[in-house]
Amino acid sequence: MSLAVGCRARPGKARDNKTGSWRVFKPVFGKEKCTLCGLCMTLCPEGCVHETEEGFITPDYTYCKGCGICAQECPGEAIEMKQEEK
């Protein structure tokens, strides 16, 4: 009988779990007030905020849980939390 000791998983396999479905409030990033300081990218517990090719900062809504940290901490108040429409 072969007995597997322990479990293994592929690196980053958790991406299969689309945590964006948890969201109740959605962070809406305003382009005008954003100074590209990047604080939201540093502080998001999901690590889902990134800069687009066009040079805008945006979260990946597939994973954003809508915790609101980015909106709370943005020094320019460029992020607004809006009720999610589903």
């Binding site: 958790a14 991406r15 502080l43 998001c44 999901e46 690590g47 597939t62 915790c67 609101g68």
Partner: peptide, 16 residues
């Protein structure tokens, strides 16, 4: 190196 899709509560300090 700690990727999206983890199941911490929204706003979890430990995840950050």
């Amino acid at each position: 190196l700690f990727d999206c899709g983890h199941r911490a509560c929204g706003g979890c300090g430990a995840a950050l």
